[in-house]
Design a protein around this nucleic acid. Structure first.
Lengths: 234, 234
DNA sequence: TACCGTTTCAAACAGGCGTTTTAATTAGTA
DNA sequence: TACTAATTAAAACGCCTGTTTGAAACGGTA
């Protein structure tokens, strides 16, 4: 039966359980084709399962998608990239954070590809499944960025702080959301010249310049890192 | 017949020609629902035309979409907003340009709504129809931005120049592509506080600081930026 | 063995989609 | 008026979608 609240896959069945194979196949399909673009038939075919297996294990397409997003985020949480930035001086941590996010945005062809792809899709068009995602994945990363910027400029009010954070994220996401357009605009060669190292440095320098030259550089602690942003979601 | 190369609508027929009404209705549907989301039936219904009228006047759905995009850009070209920025001092022109683009991104509910919406959709996921759009609408605007930044910093090489331009556009587009997520992240109230005036000023100040606006803020050089602070050791 | 809950399978269902067809209607012209 | 071409209208076609069905196969237990 398709009890959506089941949390664990006790012990995988033959080779790998049909349910697990469906989750993997669905992740690839959803991430590359989007929710509407992906079809139950194609997912089942890719997983080597029967068409009705999706409805048997997950109930319907939307529930499958929700489970896939949660599955993806579970695989990603243990490797939170922003944690490298913890404990660094804020300016250096900011540089690491930006490079990390930009690396995810640009180099999607690396391993654990579809999980990041799926999460970025959720960022752009949130669905029912993204509430948990914001709370458990995106929120902490954003909170980390927020703390670092606040450490650089403790005098910032909430509004300016948010604006600076969005300036960072916006510049990073641009190369995903409008990369195709940008390539058309400046030519493929010029666009290709904007590699990860250069762009990360550019964005970081720009933000730091905008933040101005101030003093006071406390070091972030891990306990601070997972604090809510203070402004809460939903 | 559906001669796609026809350019003019000679003199509107009854009240408004079916073709014109279809273009308008299709523009609204495509802009709000996307290409796949919009349906021929819904478009025809909204236009008060028969289902087959779409195929009669435009051939198929894709050709209709192409004509809609061209139609939208034709309605927009006479009011190129960036032209206000021409002839101004570069820093002031930059401010006007950013405010203009951000206004289009944020205040979509204003008049001439769906045209901007459609163009922004094309920016994010280019289709066959967007080659002309880049050439005739987006390209000139981008070129204007490019010239202003170059006027502020004539020493920039192409790569950095492009990066600065994309930093401007990326920050503006963010509030469209990830506005829903951003609202979830910081809360609806805090997100609402980021109004047009504030954001335009923030983005412009940030870019000017990055470009080395020696008039307003004490800006530090890149070499200073990474100096050890003596406060935070990892 | 016989039983029973779980899982898989092939097939069909119901609905929406873009598209096509065919006929009716309209407008222009001689 | 009659003829012609352009336009509109209603209905159906073929395809693909998510979903459901009912029977077959499997696995553990008595």
């Amino acid at each position: 039966m398709h009890d959506s609240n089941r949390v664990i896959e006790p012990n995988a069945g033959p080779a790998e359980s049909t349910r697990a194979r469906l989750l993997e196949a669905a992740g690839e399909e959803f991430s590359s084709l989007g929710y509407e673009g992906a079809t139950i038939r194609s997912i089942a075919l890719r997983a080597g399962a029967n068409l009705a297996a999706v409805n048997y294990h997950f109930g319907d397409k939307e529930s499958l998608y929700e489970q896939v997003v949660i599955h993806a985020h579970r695989m990603l949480v243990p490797h939170e990239p922003h944690e490298e930035a913890v404990g660094m001086p804020p300016r250096e941590g900011l540089r690491v954070w930006i490079r990390s996010m930009l690396g995810q945005v640009l180099g999607m062809q690396a391993q654990r590809g579809w999980q990041h792809e799926l999460i970025l899709r959720e960022m752009m068009r949130p669905t029912r499944a993204s509430a948990a995602l914001v709370r458990e994945v995106i929120g902490p990363r954003f909170g980390c960025l927020r703390l670092m910027i606040l450490a650089i400029r403790p005098d910032l009010d909430d509004r300016s702080l948010n604006a600076f954070c969005f300036s960072v994220v916006g510049q990073c996401l641009f190369y995903r959301t409008a990369g195709a357009l940008a390539s058309h605009l400046v030519g493929e060669a010029a666009f290709h010249a904007l590699d990860l190292d250069f762009l990360a440095a550019h964005i970081c320098d720009l933000i730091l310049a905008g933040l101005g030259n101030r003093l006071a550089l406390p070091v972030l602690s891990l306990s601070q890192m997972d604090q809510p942003t203070g402004l809460g979601g939903a």
